[in-house]
Structure formats: C-alpha cells, structure tokens
Design a protein around this nucleic acid. Structure first.
Lengths: 176, 176
DNA sequence: GGTATTGAGTTTCATTATGCAACTGACTAT
DNA sequence: ATAGTCAGTTGCATAATGAAACTCAATACC
C-alpha cells in the first residue's frame, strides 16, 4: 500500500486527507463527539480491530486531534478527548453527515440529529459563503492559486484553467 | 484488508465514508472540480497508479458521483464529469479545505482560493446552522437519534448519553 | 509505409495494511 | 482463588496498493 503521504502537498485537501482520508479516523472522531472516550468502548461501538484501533488512536494523538487523558492511576488508564483541532475536524464530519443524509436516507428519515447544548434547538449544518451568507453551489465555483501557492509548481497551475482565462481578460497584455 | 463496508450502517457519516473515506476518491473529485476530466490527466496530476485509478473511477461512476461521457468515437474515449451527487460530495471537500487551511498553512497563505463564477468574488466556505445562519461550534453540539434511527439498535443508543439525559429531565416519569 | 506518440486501460508482482483471534499484564470484585 | 475489566500486543492469512511493463486502437510524423 505504501500509503502515499500528501503531507508536503500544497493543497489543503490533500493535507487533511493524511489524517481524515481513511475509514476509521473519522468514525473515531464521531464516537468521541458522541461521548465515547475509552478504548474498549471504541472497539465495541465500531467493531474495529484492537490492533488497528491502537494505531489509529496513536496517529490521532500524534496529529493533535485527540489528547490522552489519564483518568485512573492504579492501573494507568487513559481516555481520549477531542482537542480544538479535533473539534475542527468534527466540522468536516458534519459535511459527511449532510451528504449521507441527502443521498442515502429518505428525507425526513435521518438517523441522527444534532442539537444545540444551550438552546436545545435542532442544528442543521449548511455550507455558506462567509461574506454573503448565501449557500455555496460547487458548480458555480472556480479555483485559482492563493498567496501560498508555490511559484515553482508550474505543472499544477495547468489546472487553474478558468482562473487564468479570466485573468487574461482583465489584463490582456500580460500573457502568463 | 477486507475494507469493512459501512453501507448498511444507520449513520450518514459511515455511509459517506464508503465512497469518500479514502485517499484517492476525494482527490479525484477535487481534480474534476478543477477542470480535469481525462484518464491520463488524473494520472499525471495525482501520481496515482493507473490500475487503481481505473478501479476508483469505476467505483465513483458506480456510486453515481461521476458520469462517463463519450467524447470521441473513433477510438472510444471517455471523460469523467461530476454528477449532481458528485458536486454535493465536492461540498464535503470544501470542509477539508477549510480544515487544512487553518491547521497546515499560515493564515493568509492558503495555497488555493475559490471564486464565484458569476461575480468573480472570492468565496470562503463557512459552516452555519441553516435556521439561524450562525457558525456551528461542534463543542456545543450533542447528538440524538433521528426519525430514521432503527428502534431495534439498542446498543448504539448508549452513545446518546446527553440526549436521553435531557429528555428525562423533561419527562421524568418515563424511564428509558 | 514504417516508426513514434497519445489515450485508456490491463496484467504482474512485491510490499503493506487490515481483520481476526488469541494472549499479556495490571489490577478489582466476589 | 477465580473470574472479570481495561488497554493493549502479537501472529498470521488475506486483500489492497504502488510501480512498472504491456496491450490495443488510432492518429501524426517523415
């Protein structure tokens, strides 16, 4: 397998996939969000092999999404809790939820619902543009290099068709 | 490996992971979103093995996220395009982007930016509650069974600690 | 006409990760 | 003294991956 690490890729998606692009890690984070924190509970709820659970937990702790918390001294026992980064990863899971609900369950028959801890009101995640607060339609997007895009990476620039086409309409003299 | 399919799990996250819980599928969808549609282009951009690219494309077409489009008759040649479902999956990718940008790149140095096709304005994805339009804080959420949750699945109900605790505060007579 | 190139895949094979089951070690409850 | 809980390890068969070479079919070059 050799797992092809994307940790050096200049793409936020690829970077995230290093820790979230797998079957178990998101599910472990989900359980944590639902209030599961101990080894055997993860194992039972997920049906994951104990060996790979060990590995996944180590990875998630190593990546800073979970923290190990000693909850008992006598035989040392640890719980796993979400860090701030872990909670941010959970936000990605909400994306999975919305997608899954729409495409795999009849509408109105969603298996799980989310509520606000303060108000108790149901929470329905929606992806919007931060500025206009309007829902995002991926079909109406195009991508371009940002400030952190490596100048050197000429090959990958090929992808940003639309960006450069539009740019050259604005500055027709500069031919990239 | 035996890939443990979650297709029957009563969880939207698990269901989504069947097709998105992998390193390549999200990246293929990303490329598609950036305007890449042909076999050799995927292979070059992603550095993915041609054999597994074949399998992934088949899976994505089979799952209905991509559609094969004949673009040349003589030697039959196909392009892969996002379906509506595929574009919805792309919405999940935006979640990955936000996460990756925040945790793996200095702020203001995001490698890739998104723009609106109509207005040309930059688009910044943000997860909000559909009703209140306020940003979602995963720390302030708790989960409970929805209308589609299988009554039979008593084991998994254990997870919804907070939900049942709160419920019994409201209806203290009914002890679940 | 013969050779090279492109596009889209297969095939083969060594390397890794996974799932399963059994085992260890430290303690606790009966 | 025996059974049970919790958190892992260890060992092994099996399945997925990555890399490179190979197959077709057709067009482009000379």
């Amino acid at each position: 397998m050799e797992k092809t690490s994307f940790s050096s890729s200049p793409c936020s998606i690829a970077r995230s996939l290093d820790v979230l692009g797998d079957w178990w890690n998101p599910l472990i984070i989900r359980e944590c969000l639902y209030g599961v924190h101990r080894f055997d509970e993860y194992q039972k709820h997920l049906g994951i092999g104990r060996n790979i659970l060990t590995r996944r937990l180590k990875q998630l702790v190593g990546e800073g999404l979970l923290e190990r918390r000693l909850y008992q001294e006598k035989p040392q026992r640890y719980e796993y809790h979400l860090t701030e980064k872990g909670y941010d990863a959970a936000r990605v899971l909400l994306g999975f939820m919305s997608f899954g609900e729409k495409w795999y369950f009849d509408s109105g028959k969603d298996p799980i619902r989310l509520y606000d801890r303060d108000s108790g009101a149901q929470v329905v995640p929606l992806l919007v543009d931060a500025a206009t607060k309007k829902p995002i339609d991926p079909q109406k997007l195009y991508a371009g290099p940002g400030p952190g895009f490596p100048e050197s990476d000429v090959v990958r620039r090929e992808r940003f068709d639309e960006f450069f086409r539009r740019k050259s309409e604005v500055e027709p003299n500069k031919t990239t």
